[in-house]
Amino acid sequence: MPYTLKINGTDHQVDGDSDTPLLWVLRNVLEMTGTKFGCGAALCGACTVHIDGVATRSCVTEIDNVGTAAITTIEAIDATPAGHKIQKAWLDLEVVQCGYCQSGQIMSASALLASNPKPNDSDIDDAMSGNICRCGTYVRIREAIKQAALSGNTNERRG
């Protein structure tokens, strides 16, 4: 059946079974490939997007459950203050290796920073332990979140 999904501020009309995971609508139907497939079972976090600002695994989110909520993906996270700071810290600290999981890492980290401007190690563990990185960039992910947190108020929208 037809659905209207609000993604990165734009409405998209898509047609599909109600149980179609949002991930495949993003990747295959709308060709927004920044959001990644890793496990299909909410075990690895590679597919993380924001739904009304909450980090959500798109691989197990059926389109029927999204409704009119605002979906934000890696392609637009730069427009949020927390996302922008996180991306900058990721670049400054050279976090990435193969990079495949990093869209999901950045989405989880951005959601954390938006809701908790000064996360401690335990907060970081809680928010990020659902995101697997097989290259093992965890040391730098932790440092980058802390650096982003130090870089000022994350609640203001950028200009």
Binding site: W90, G99, S103
Partner: peptide, 27 residues
């Protein structure tokens, strides 16, 4: 030196094999 492959890996534009897009492609 700064890695030359990071920008696309941070903003979602980096292309892995799984991201290939072709007209009329099936999955």
């Amino acid at each position: 030196a700064k890695r030359i492959d990071v920008a696309g890996k941070v903003n979602g534009t980096a292309m892995y094999g799984i991201d290939a897009k072709l007209p009329g492609m099936k999955i």
